[in-house]
Structure formats: C-alpha cells, structure tokens
C-alpha cells in the first residue's frame, strides 16, 4: 500500500536528553496505527516531530517519498496535510465553534467563506456538534471540545490525522463520545496515528500497534500479536501493568 509518511533513523535530542533514538516506521494510506507506551517514553515527541511541531535532530521524514526536512516543501503546507488533535484540545479561544473550523480553510487553503462554512458544517455534523456552532470553547464540555477539535482538523481535509492522547484530559464519562467518533473515522478509511492509553480501542480498532519504551520502538505489529503474545519482555511487562489497572 502507498506510504504516506515514512520515518528513517529519526533522532530527537532535548539538551542532553536523547528522547527519540533511531526511530524507523511508516504509515500507509487508510491505516490506523496506535502508539502505546509508558509516560515519558517519547510518544508525543514522535507525533510532534511527524508534523514538525518539533524539529528532529537527525534522520529523515519522507512524505510520499520526499524528505520534508530538506525544505522541498514549506513547513506550513506540509503541516496542513497532517491534522493534529491535542490532549488539551487547544480550540481557539477567541473564535466560536464554527469559526474554529473555518479559519484554517480560509487562511491556509484560501477557500471562500461560503465553501469553508459548508465544509465546517459537514464535519461538525459528523462529530455531532453542529448545534453548537455559536458556542465559544469555554462554554462547552471537554468531550464536546475534543469533538470540535476533530472537526477542525478534518475541515482541512488532511491526508492523515494524528491524535495525541485525545481522551486523557477528559472526565471518564466523556471518553466514550470521543472514542465513538474516532471509531467511525477509522471505519471510514481515514489514515490515523493515535497515541493512546485506551487499550480496548487499540485492540479493536487499529490495524497496527506500536509499543514504545525509552525512546525506541520496541515492537510494531498487528494488535492480536501485541496483545496476545508479544515477542518482547518489555511489552509484556507494560501490558501486564496497564491491564491490571
């Protein structure tokens, strides 16, 4: 299958702290990949490197075979192709729900207001938030915020959507509504890369699960393999610890 992003020998160093060590992996079109691992293992940093919120120290990131670190493409254009959903939602506080989903389309994709509005409404409908177009971010719940954040990312019609622990900041009773939307997106064939602690989601929805520990990819396999008989001792220990909770 066609690879959207391929990462080779990626390294990221913060000061003297080597957070990512020789990372190699790729995401193909239509794939849903979950990244699991202990806190501090470098999952967020990897995701942030992939859409260049952090600049890798070494290695290459191939986007359709082109190394984006060699300035073949401007950073902004590339980022628009890789949507991102954050743990803390990060909705634009000065804009209402509809404007949150329109501003990028108008300013980055140069779509007309009418077109941007139509697209935004489509995706807000999809996540079940079309009734709240006039609300400001501080007027809606966490689960609603995250659904708007997903609609905002989808409105840019990206090639892949990156999720960084999208449900970790939510009250337990609000996790379900967000996972439901993500499940529907996965089934619609969207390419997704999801950092998550929701093991059931990783097991049931993803095509591949990547286990990270201490800045390296320890195991990268089908969910059946990772969850039922992981090859690596570290994966086993991690899963045992997290599934016991």
């Amino acid at each position: 299958m066609e690879k959207i992003v391929e990462i080779n020998h990626l390294q990221k160093i913060f000061g003297r702290n080597e957070v990512l060590k020789d990372i190699n992996f790729s995401v193909s079109k239509g794939e849903v990949v979950c990244i699991i691992g202990a806190s501090g293992s470098g999952k967020s940093t990897l995701l942030r490197c992939i859409n260049l919120l952090e600049y890798p120290t070494a290695g290459e990131i191939l986007y359709h075979g082109q190394n984006i670190l060699e300035h073949k493409m401007t950073t902004a254009v590339y980022r628009a192709k890789m949507g991102m959903v954050f743990q803390q939602f990060n909705l634009f506080n000065n804009l209402n729900v509809l404007q949150n989903c329109m501003v990028g389309q108008e300013k980055v994709l140069k779509r007309s207001k009418a077109e941007a509005r139509k697209t935004a409404l489509e995706y807000l409908e999809l996540v079940g938030m079309s009734q709240f177009i006039n609300a400001k971010p501080n007027q809606i719940s966490g689960g609603q915020k995250q659904r708007v954040a997903i609609a905002r990312a989808l409105s840019m019609e990206p090639e892949a959507l990156l999720f960084d622990e999208p449900t970790s900041a939510l009250d337990p009773e609000l996790v379900g509504e967000v996972l439901k939307v993500m499940k529907a997106l996965a089934q619609s064939g969207l390419t997704m890369l999801v950092v998550t602690h929701e093991m059931a989601f990783a097991r049931d929805v993803s095509h591949r699960v990547v286990f990270m520990d201490d800045g390296v990819i320890v195991e990268d396999d089908k969910p059946e393999v990772i969850f039922n008989n992981p090859r690596n001792e570290r994966t086993r220990t991690f899963l045992k610890r997290i599934l016991e909770k």
Binding site: L53, V77, Y78, R79, F92, N94, L95
Partner: peptide, 25 residues
C-alpha cells in the same frame, strides 16, 4: 502555547497565527 501549536498544526504561518488567533486574545 497550545493556541500557537493548534494554529501551526493546521498550517498557519506565524503571521497568520498572530493576526487571527493570538493578537485578538
């Protein structure tokens, strides 16, 4: 910082981010 990152993640340049998101706030 999340406001900057969200704007960057949808492809806004620094100038667009400042004008549309940061300065109004």
């Amino acid at each position: 910082k999340g406001q900057f990152e969200a704007a960057h993640s949808i492809g806004m340049t620094h100038a667009q981010t400042m004008l549309n998101i940061i300065l109004p706030q």
